[in-house]
Nucleic acid binder design. Structure first.
Lengths: 137, 137
DNA sequence: TTCTCTGCAAACGCTTTGCACGGAT
DNA sequence: ATCCGTGCAAAGCGTTTGCAGAGAA
């Protein structure tokens, strides 16, 4: 993405220094980081950054549809700056989350299901990732 | 399910009184309860029950494939005694979780995807449930 | 006895809240 | 002066851990 500030303004979010940095990191990162991972990475170049700000910013981003979020373990949330349709593969061994793009995958009707208004669909695959498969062999 | 004790034994789990009760409740319940909901319901008829036992039991059930579990909010886990293939609809308004059975839904190949060994697939729909739709109207 | 199930209480970890300071309008 | 972004510290809450007592084999 080229114009991050314009993108944020377009979503009704003032593009402060911290917010731009956090979104930049999220867009450059494919590891579906937790708050702690984001904080630990960014505090290296922004020593005054606080974790509260990371929480505030991600909550704001999430409510405005700038990022996706989900939880694997029920303890910590993971954030994804890629909001294009794709699913995730979660490794049961190492816990890593990989992006998966399959045409075969649902992408189900944006219509009503059982009377419920469907706004989106998240797909998670579980198993053993290729890295952990190697180690086991 | 008729023979819960036999079912548990078959999974290598000693069918203690508490365990049978917890599994019975999970099988009779479609609300995808949290630990707290299970505890509050069962402690009424088993006053000596402790939350630790509920945690222990559910962890055991989960590891042995007796129940499914997932998290909506990243804080608490929800448990599902129905292990047959189905997906879930999560209401963004009231937080309730509904079962959804769609032939159209993925049920993707139990094969490798991007080199990862796939063992299962969870599908979550998000939106506004029929009850909350009524209230909004 | 020995092994397992159970349960209280404390410890943990992630997230939220309360509140105040400082910069921008 | 007002509004908003930021950050420290404390509180909150679901879950895990340590450990001991009770019960089954």
């Amino acid at each position: 993405m080229r114009d991050i500030k314009g993108f944020l303004r377009g979503r009704g979010i003032a593009p402060s220094f911290h917010r731009v940095k956090i979104l930049e990191y999220l867009l450059s990162c494919k590891s579906h980081p937790t708050v702690d991972m984001i904080y630990r990475e960014l505090v290296r170049e922004i020593p005054t950054l606080s974790k509260t700000t990371v929480y505030n910013t991600l909550e704001l981003f999430y409510r405005r549809g700038v990022v996706l979020r989900f939880s694997i373990d029920g303890k910590k949330m993971r954030y994804d700056g890629d909001t294009t349709p794709h699913s995730h593969f979660v490794c049961e061994v190492c816990g890593k989350v990989y992006d998966v793009r399959l045409d075969a995958v649902p992408v189900v009707p944006k219509e009503k299901v059982d009377g419920h208004l469907v706004k989106g669909c998240d797909v998670f695959f579980r198993g053993v990732c290729r890295e952990c498969l190697k180690k086991t062999t």
